[in-house]
């Protein structure tokens, strides 16, 4: 069984709104594949927690860039 994933990024107020979609590919009925998809996303990939981690890490990177630039500019 394969999984197809699309990640769509929209700019939003200086940030990003991510739309993340998954579709399982296999010979099983669609209803079963949908159920398996939900289990995979929530229990195996833990995507909600993953995105929270991603927010923390990417915000840290953004803050670091902004902070260093501000520090350089204000200390002159």
């Amino acid at each position: 069984m394969n999984a197809k994933i699309t990640g769509e990024l929209d700019p939003l107020n200086g940030g990003t709104h991510l739309k993340w979609r998954i579709r399982l590919e296999g010979i099983l009925p669609r209803s079963i594949l949908r159920l398996l998809s939900r289990i995979t996303v929530n229990k195996v990939l833990e995507m909600s927690s993953s995105f929270e981690n991603l927010e923390v890490l990417s915000k840290k990177q953004l803050d670091k860039t902004t902070f260093e630039l501000n520090k350089k500019t204000t200390s002159m």
Partner: peptide, 20 residues
């Protein structure tokens, strides 16, 4: 899609793209 998730991040698309 079997599952649609949405999440809003603070950083702009190039930074999120790189992390993804």
């Amino acid at each position: 899609a079997d599952v649609n998730l949405e999440y809003t991040f603070t950083a702009p698309p190039p930074i999120i793209w790189d992390w993804l």
